[in-house]
Every structure is written in structure tokens, then in C-alpha cells.
């Protein structure tokens, strides 16, 4: 039983990072109908920005216990801000010029941007893995045979907090309403005076900032960074978004957690060989059975 609970806890911790990244996919898809395949790379870049921010803030040795919570928060905020800028730049230079183009063009551009960012990262950061500084001192806690670290709790808490904040932002603020308006009908929203370009740019910024937050949490937990790390995680987060219903924010959160748990349970109780496979099996099944995703609604496709 305690093993099962442990796997569940592990799954929730992996899943909440997927969820944070999935939010970015889902927001961009929701507003533009575009799958931003460069999102996994934004996650990676966020992670590296965090690494350099921590060093810049005076984090010297890799096991220093005296990094204040203030600085840790600052690392998180700097990474989020940096990634937001990267996201906006991607939107401005890669996607905006293609706004009127057929849907395939921006999709291929997205793959191109993803490869470009990966290779820039290899050049800039070297392909050798780096170690993420432990800006929060890790403590281990035990409850009923389940071991959990304060970092895992922190990951879960921050993810939930950010998701709630996003939900509030989209539902209750004027800009959120503008985002939803764009997602329903871009030309009509423009006619109603919504500054579409600015709102879309903001959507990318928010999605990217959340990915960077995921990156920092991931770095804290898993320690190792490398330029290609966004690849698989990005893909899984994308599947999480599809599972939850792409375009649906709550769906992305639930999809991320479900994928995380499914992965860990498969590895724990079936075989670790199928750990990655299960995610893709879920994708195929959901596309066959319920293509709109768990919480998605079927939209009439305009022809």
C-alpha cells in the first residue's frame, strides 16, 4: 500500500510539471489554433535562465545551504520573465508574419523554431549536462511509509497556485476576456476593438512564463539540465494538453497529472520499458475515442 501511495506521489510530482507546460500549449492553441512545438524549448531555456540567475545572485558552491528564500523566488521570477520575452520574440518573428497563412505553415515553422532553439542552446550552453543549483535546501519527510521531499510539496503547491491564478486571469480580467474572444473568432474580436496582436503576444508571454516555472521546479527536483531536455517533456506535455482537451485550461492541468500518474504506475506495476510508450498509447486512444479530449467541447469547423 505504501508503495502504491509512493508511486502516486511520484506521479503527481512528475505530472504537475507536465501540467504547467501543457498550459502553454493549450493557451496558444486556444487563441490561435496553433500548436507551438517550440514550447518544450522555452521550458528548457527557462531552466537555463534560472541556472544563470542563481549564479548571478551569488550562488557559488553547488551545495550551499544559505541561499535565501528571497533569492530563490527571484530566480523563479527572473526565469519566468526571461522565458516570457523569449516566447514573445518567437511569436513576433516566427508566427505573426504567418498569421494569414494556411495552418500547415505555422506548424512547420514551429518545428523549425524548436530545432533552432535546441541548436542555439547546444552552442550557448554546450551539450554537456549541467547541474541545477539547489537553491532550496532539501528536506525529507515521511508519512505512513511514503517519503516526500519539501521540494515535491513545493512543486505541487506552486503548480496549483499558478494554475488557479491563470484560471482567475482568463475568467475574471478584461485581458482574459479578450483572449477568450480571440479564441472564439479572431476577426470579430478585432472588429470589437480587441488589440489582437498585443493579446496574442501576452498569451505567449504567459504560457512561456509558466513553462519557465515548470523548468525551475523541474531543475530543483531533477538537478540535471541539458539542451535537449525540452524534447520529450514537451511532447508529453503536449499529449497531456490533448488528453485534457486542447484549448481547455483545466483540461491541461488534469491531463498533465493523469499522464504523470499513468507513467509512474506503468513503470511501477507493469514494466519500466513501457513508461514512455503508455503516454503515446493514451494519445492514440484519446484521438480514436474522444478526439476533443476529456474536457474539450466539439467545435463546429468552419469551412
Amino acid at each position: 500500500m505504501s508503495t502504491f501511495l509512493q508511486q502516486l506521489v511520484n506521479g503527481l510530482s512528475v505530472g504537475s510539471i507536465y501540467a504547467l507546460i501543457a498550459l502553454g500549449y493549450t493557451m496558444v492553441y486556444g487563441t490561435l489554433g496553433l500548436i507551438n512545438f517550440a514550447h518544450g524549448e522555452v521550458f528548457m531555456i527557462g531552466c537555463y535562465i534560472g541556472l544563470y540567475a542563481a549564479f548571478w545572485l551569488g550562488y557559488e558552491t553547488l551545495s550551499a545551504a544559505s541561499f535565501s528564500p528571497m533569492s530563490a523566488t527571484l530566480v523563479l521570477l527572473l526565469a519566468m520573465a526571461g522565458a516570457a520575452i523569449v516566447g514573445m520574440l518567437i511569436e513576433r518573428f516566427a508566427y505573426r508574419p504567418l498569421r494569414g497563412a494556411p495552418r500547415l505553415a505555422p506548424l512547420i515553422t514551429a518545428i523549425g523554431v524548436s530545432l533552432l532553439l535546441q541548436n542555439i542552446a547546444v552552442l550557448a550552453f554546450s551539450a554537456n549536462p549541467r547541474s541545477f543549483p539547489s537553491i532550496i535546501t532539501e528536506h525529507r519527510l515521511e508519512f505512513a511509509g511514503v517519503t516526500i521531499t519539501n521540494i515535491k510539496i513545493f512543486i505541487f503547491a506552486v503548480s496549483i497556485l499558478l494554475m488557479l491564478a491563470l484560471e482567475f486571469f482568463v475568467k475574471k480580467t478584461w485581458t482574459g476576456r479578450a483572449m477568450r474572444a480571440i479564441s472564439v473568432n479572431l476577426p470579430a474580436a478585432k472588429l470589437m476593438g480587441v488589440p489582437a496582436d498585443r493579446v496574442i503576444s501576452l498569451t505567449f508571454a504567459i504560457g512561456s512564463a509558466l513553462a519557465a516555472a515548470g523548468g525551475i521546479l523541474f531543475g530543483l527536483d531533477q538537478t540535471k539540465l541539458e539542451p535537449l531536455m525540452g524534447n520529450m517533456i514537451g511532447l508529453k506535455a503536449f499529449i497531456a494538453a490533448v488528453l485534457g482537451g486542447i484549448g481547455n485550461i483545466r483540461g491541461a492541468a488534469i491531463g498533465g497529472l493523469l499522464i504523470g500518474i499513468a507513467e509512474l504506475m506503468t513503470a511501477g506495476y507493469i514494466s519500466s520499458d513501457y513508461r514512455d510508450a503508455i503516454t503515446f498509447v493514451i494519445l492514440i486512444v484519446i484521438l480514436l475515442v474522444r478526439p476533443q479530449g476529456l474536457l474539450g467541447v466539439v467545435r463546429q469547423e468552419k469551412v
Binding site: 508503495t3 508511486q7 523541474f218 531533477q222 524534447n231 506503468t266 513503470a267 519500466s272
Partner: peptide
Amino acid sequence: EESYNEGDTDFSAQLTKIKA
């Protein structure tokens, strides 16, 4: 006898199993 893939970063499922 557990396994992982190159590039994996999370091994908690396999290790939890091994711990038991």
C-alpha cells in the same frame, strides 16, 4: 531488473519498486 532510457531524468517509479 528495471530499465530506463537515455535522457530520462525521473527514476522514482523504478526506485520505489526497488525500495520495497
